[in-house]
Amino acid sequence: MNIFRLAGDMTHLASVLVLLLKIHTIKSCAGISLKTQELFAIVFASRYLDIFTDFISLYNTLMKLIFLGSSFSIVWYIRRHKLVRRSYDKDQDTFRHYFLLLPCFILALLINEKFTFKEVMWTFSLYLEAVAILPQLVLLQRTKNIDNLTGQYVFLLGAYRGLYILNWIYRYFTEPHYVHWIPWISGLVQTLLYADFFYYYFESWKNNKKLQLPA
């Protein structure tokens, strides 16, 4: 564990807590894409298949349970909770996110570190996570006034993988045989997808004006 990865995990945790805070306290998911949340639930379900077979550390298992539990409960909240579901704008959240599953799965079958079920599912989760934010970014472009919590949620989500890239650079230089091109490239693609959001997010923060993504 290094400071970059810990910071990345804490940032990821913070993003989940901000979203849960928003949904649980003000009972609203305005501006939040259910499709992105469903993709994240699939990402964690396919990545943490080894949660009961490979024990890495208490921290690792605990965080996996938190990410699994929070992602599925957020999907449940938006789909089932009588108050929250009313604030979900399904007419705007129209990205065909299921179309992302097959290409990611096929790519995982073709490009992976080892052709085993767990490894292919792990690779699939990396490719899917890289594109899972797309429905949310599309929805943000359509959302007139993005509320602060939603903006902070997306910012933290983008920042966490950026911190992981620093972690991978650090591990590459400190652990001789540590080379994993697949998470590195998908993590880089994932972070680059946030580039324009980061730009407008900092602009709105610098000029102290409402966050607004151009359509």
Partner: peptide, 10 residues
Amino acid sequence: KKEAESHDEL
């Protein structure tokens, strides 16, 4: 070996 086998990152 263990390290190589399983992925230690979230």
